[in-house]
């Protein structure tokens, strides 16, 4: 078969692979653009670049998603985004946070946790809010990149009805040209997803319906 293909394009006059990528838009305020695009898709944006905003932001996320627990897989997630200190804040706990972390293999003992327990696959179906950290974000389209790595999986960010993504401001890129110049395809894990807003469909009379097979709600929290 390969020989057949080779013979078929043997005589073909090709053109050189274009070198210079076309211009992609730049923004003076990428955060504002990111927010605008995310909200256009039905996503919800929170600015928590001031760490003291975090308790209020998290409270709001939990209220909006009608959840009392957050599930996540990445051990460093909350540390990386400056959360441990915040969550130790008694005020936050007083508002009824019940934070579970989970892991297939090992018990995690992060200082921030009130409760830590082993995560079973069967629990996935009843998780109402999951959290992950975005490797990268793109202002042009309000997108975030979800990476699968060792110690994490593909399902937790897609099965629950609500998902919250932490994005660090330094990982926010301008546009897709920048993104695909630096996208670490296959370098860390087997899957990577560019997420832009909640799951949606327009298969019925082109009417937009939010929340089909994936999360109905997508929150993005921008941290510094």
């Amino acid at each position: 078969m390969l020989e057949k293909v080779r013979r078929a394009c043997d005589q073909a006059e090709g053109v050189e692979l274009p070198g210079q990528s076309p211009q992609f838009p730049q923004y003076t305020d990428p955060v504002a653009k990111f927010r605008q695009e995310l909200e256009r898709t039905g996503g919800v944006f929170f600015d928590a670049r001031q760490p003291k905003e975090l308790p209020a932001v998290l409270t709001s996320v939990m209220k909006q998603s009608d959840s009392t627990e957050i599930y996540w897989e990445d051990e460093q997630l909350f540390q990386r985004h400056g959360l441990p200190f915040t969550l130790r804040n008694p005020e936050a706990f007083a508002k009824g946070f019940l934070v579970y972390s989970f892991h297939f293999r090992q018990e995690m003992k992060l200082p921030i946790l009130l409760n830590s327990k082993r995560y079973e696959r069967s629990e996935l179906a009843r998780v109402s809010l999951s959290a992950s950290s975005a490797g990268l974000g793109v202002a042009e389209t309000g997108s975030v990149v979800h990476e699968v790595r060792s110690g994490a999986g593909r399902l937790l960010s897609v099965l629950p009805p609500a998902h919250v993504v932490f994005l660090s401001e330094k990982d926010l890129l301008m546009n897709h040209a920048e993104l695909f110049r630096s996208l670490p395809l296959g370098q860390y894990g087997s899957a990577l997803t560019l997420v832009t807003g909640p799951s949606r469909t327009a298969d019925i009379e082109k009417t937009l319906v939010i929340g089909v097979h994936g999360p109905k709600q997508l929150f993005v929290i921008l941290t510094s």
């Binding site: 898709t41 897989e73 790595r149 060792s150 999986g153 395809l185 894990g189 087997s190 990577l192 994936g214």
Partner: peptide, 18 residues
């Protein structure tokens, strides 16, 4: 402007992935 999900898949699951 962008679809909800663009999946980039590099083979089967790797060691350590859940």
């Amino acid at each position: 402007t962008m679809s909800s999900y663009v999946n980039f898949l590099n083979g089967p699951r790797r060691n350590g992935e859940l």
